[in-house]
Design a protein around this nucleic acid. Structure first.
Lengths: 232, 232
DNA sequence: GCAAAAGTGTTTACAGTACACCCATGG
DNA sequence: CCATGGGTGTACTGTAAACACTTTTGC
C-alpha cells in the first residue's frame, strides 16, 4: 500500500450494544461501569474497538459477551456516529446496534474492562452522564425501538415462551410509554393471528388465572415479510 | 498512543452516496464510472474514502460534489457495511447515505476519478454489476426510500417549487412501483393539508391545464414532528 | 370538434375507539 | 366472602377502497 493511501487507514472502529430488557414490568437498559481509561469509573453502553480481522456485524455478540456475559442475541444495526472528537484517544467511528431481551432469562456477569454490569430503568439511565456520546446513541436507539414495535411483532426473546396477554400489553405500554385499552389491545393483537392460545393456564396466582399464549412462528415470519403494521 | 492500541487504528472509512432522482416520469439513480483501480471502468455509487480530519456526516456532500458536481443536498444515513473482504485494498468500512432530488434542477459533471456520471433508471441499474458491494447498498437504500415516502412528505427537492397533483402522484407511483387511484390519492394528500393551492395554472399544455400547488412549510414541519403516516 | 389530461363524489366495508361489568382463583 | 386481576361485546365514528363521467385547453 502506498504512503498516500496509508493516510486513510488510520481510523478505529467500535461497536456499541444497546440492550433493552423487559422484566415483566419495566423497560430497562444494560450498562457497564468502565474500569479503564477513557471515562474510567463512568457508566457506558457495552462496546469496544473492533479488531481489524473481525467482521462488523459478527462482532457485536462477541463484544457484548466479553463485557457482560450475554450471548447470541439478535441485533439490528441502528446508526453510525462519526464526530471528529467523539473519542478522546483518536479517530474512532462507532456503529450502534440494538436488541430487546427478557431480563429474567439471562444472567449478567461483568468482565474485561467492565467492573459492573447493571440493568437500569430507562428514565434513570437518561439521568446519568454516560461515557463518550452514549447518551445520544441511547436516545437514537430508543426511538428506533419504539418505531420497531409498531411495525413488527418484536420477537421471541421478549417474554417467556408462554405468556399472558397482560404481559404482552405491559411490554407495549413500557416501550411506548402509554396506557392501552385492554379490550382493544386484545382484539387488535389477536386479529393479527400470530399468537396461538395454549391449553395451559397461569398457576399460583391469587386471582383468575390467565390463558397462556405462544407465537405462531410461521404466521409471524409471513407478517414480517409483508410489512406488518401495528398501530397501537 | 501505545503499540497495542495502534493495531486498532488501521481501518479506512468510506462514504457512499445513493442519489435518487425524479425527472417527472421515472425514478433514477446517479452512478459514476470509475477511472481508477480498484474496479476501474466499472459503474459505482459516487463515494470515496473519508479523510481522517473530516466529520462523517459533513463529508457526504463534499465527496458527492467532487465526483459529480452536485452540492448541498440533504442526506440521510442508511446503513454501514463492514464485511471483511468488501474492499480489495484493505479493511474499509463504508457508510451509505441517500437523498432524493429533482433531476431537472441539477447539472451533473463528472470529475476526479469519475470519468462519467449518469442517471440510470432503477431497473437498468439493477442489471449492472456495480463496483464493490454497491448492488447490495443500492438495494438497501431503495427499500429505505420506499419506507420514507410512506412516513413523511418527502421534501422540497423532489419536484419543482410549483407542481401539479398529477406530478406528485407520478412520483409516488415511481417510487412505490404501483398504480394509485387518482381520486383517492388527491383526497388523501389534500387531507393532510401540507399542500397549498396557488392561483397559477399550468400553461402550454394541449389539454385542460392543472392547478399548481406548493408545500406549506409550517404544516409540513409540524407533521414531521408528529410522525406523519401516509399509507398509500 | 377531437384528443388529452384535469378534476370531481358517493357508496360500501372494515378498522379504530370508547366504554362497564362478570368471572375464576387464592387466601 | 373478599380481593385481585382476567376476560369479554357493542355501538359509533372515521378512514380506505372501488368506481365513471364532465371539464378545459391546444390544435
Amino acid at each position: 500500500m502506498n504512503k498516500e493511501l496509508l493516510h486513510y487507514f488510520t481510523f478505529a472502529l467500535s461497536i456499541d450494544c444497546v440492550v433493552f430488557g423487559f422484566d415483566g414490568t419495566d423497560l430497562k437498559i444494560l450498562l457497564i461501569e468502565r474500569n479503564e481509561i477513557p471515562f474510567k469509573n463512568q457508566w457506558a453502553l457495552p462496546g469496544d474497538l473492533l479488531d481489524p480481522k473481525e467482521d462488523l456485524d459478527d462482532s457485536v455478540n462477541f463484544i457484548l459477551k466479553k463485557l457482560t456475559g450475554l450471548s447470541d442475541l439478535f441485533f439490528e444495526q441502528v446508526e453510525t456516529f462519526g464526530d471528529i472528537n467523539r473519542h478522546p484517544l483518536g479517530r474512532v467511528i462507532t456503529t450502534s446496534y440494538f436488541t430487546l431481551v427478557n431480563i429474567n432469562k439471562y444472567e449478567v456477569n461483568p468482565s474485561s474492562f467492565a467492573s459492573k454490569a447493571k440493568w437500569w430503568k430507562i428514565e434513570d439511565a437518561n439521568e446519568l452522564k454516560l461515557a463518550f456520546d452514549h447518551n445520544l446513541i441511547l436516545d437514537k436507539c430508543f426511538k428506533k425501538l419504539q418505531d420497531s414495535i409498531r411495525t413488527r411483532p418484536i420477537g421471541f426473546e421478549l417474554i417467556n415462551h408462554k405468556f399472558t396477554l397482560t404481559e404482552l400489553q405491559t411490554l407495549y405500554e413500557a416501550i411506548l410509554n402509554i396506557k392501552l385499552d385492554t379490550r382493544n389491545f386484545r382484539k387488535k393483537i389477536l386479529q393479527k393471528k400470530f399468537l396461538r392460545e395454549t391449553d395451559t393456564l397461569q398457576s399460583n396466582v391469587s386471582h383468575r388465572p390467565a390463558k397462556l399464549y405462544t407465537f405462531d412462528i410461521d404466521r409471524y415470519e409471513l407478517l414480517k415479510k409483508q410489512g406488518f403494521s401495528f398501530e397501537v
